[in-house]
Design a protein around this nucleic acid. Sequence first.
DNA 1: CCTTGACCAGAGTATTACTCTAGAGTAGCA
DNA 2: TGCTACTCTAGAGTAATACTCTGGTCAAGG
Lengths: 197, 197
Amino acid sequence: MAPAERRDVILRAALALFVERGFGPATMAEVCARAGVSNGSLFHHFPSKEALGAAVYLEGLGRYQARLLGALRAEADAERGVRAAVGAHLAWVGENPDWAQFLFAMGRAEVAAAAPGELGALNRPFFAAVEAWFAGHVAAGRVRAMPREVRAAVLVGPAQEFCRGWLRRRDPAALERARPLLEGAAWRGVKAKKRKA
Amino acid sequence: MAPAERRDVILRAALALFVERGFGPATMAEVCARAGVSNGSLFHHFPSKEALGAAVYLEGLGRYQARLLGALRAEADAERGVRAAVGAHLAWVGENPDWAQFLFAMGRAEVAAAAPGELGALNRPFFAAVEAWFAGHVAAGRVRAMPREVRAAVLVGPAQEFCRGWLRRRDPAALERARPLLEGAAWRGVKAKKRKA
DNA sequence: CCTTGACCAGAGTATTACTCTAGAGTAGCA
DNA sequence: TGCTACTCTAGAGTAATACTCTGGTCAAGG
């Protein structure tokens, strides 16, 4: 088996196991068994359990960010873009529930500790790109001016919070029902006040 | 030392330690040392590390819920109530950052596993009370009708998401600046469409 | 063929959550 | 005061598990 392939096998096995048993209770021996890999091989690719968790986290985060950014960039209109971003968030969670659950469960602090710098390397350009997309709409008065962190929270907060609960049941119909409501809430949250024309 | 007092000493030491070192890396021996309690005493009061974590979690959650519900019930007006709830959320996090950080970091799933039933026993009446407060406003057409989970997400999602990031820096001024924006976003998210009078 | 270096295997070790046995206080009751 | 029953505390002991170590395989380059 090629090294990269083996690394990938380990990552997938680890994701499934961490979601099934939880990160804490899951043991490295179980990862070995599920991935069909020896102890030595596992620790060769990932120096610690936290590093393995961080690798799974970072790969998932990267995919999620790519999806969200793609949806945002495909729209020029402010409202359509915001709705598309929220919709993409929900769609990604719906299509990758295991990964989403792990991203929610694994704390950023632990990832940052296990893979210093890599989290920032992924987040910085992502947030910069999101801000760049919004900048024009803010300048044109279509979107309310607010600090980055606040806008990010208003944008994805409702969807994020909803998904946390949704992952317990994972009912696709509920996700579809909630989508327009969450998209609307996000848009009303960030859009500018009506100007007295 | 009275038993209840000792139990409380352990809880406080555990909270400080879990926030400082993280739940996973923290050891029970460190809890003993910080609380000034023997191993036997610690395990007498809490049968496992997860149970200890769950106890800290549940106590914090209870205090948070009481604060939020108090703020909501003190207001009869829909908009003032929503803003008060979000404000109370932010205020509680600002005043109890350690507890908030632990609540965010500790997953609900692990708590539910370690203390089965207790999480629901705390959450059920809380959500019921929140829903009861909203019911009248929904019926009167002041608040948009939506499923419970969606409304909860729209209500506290932005503040929740903002707080997650805020806890890294803990700058009180930033919290105050964000408050009106987050309150406004929550209110615009849940309020009913304007009627054509 | 020889070397080199990444990759893999599995036994070994140190740490840590948890257990066990015994003892110290404390309240109730005569 | 003495007796009983009980909760709480102490600290040595145990099993599990993250990680280490030593050695071995294999493919590529010279």
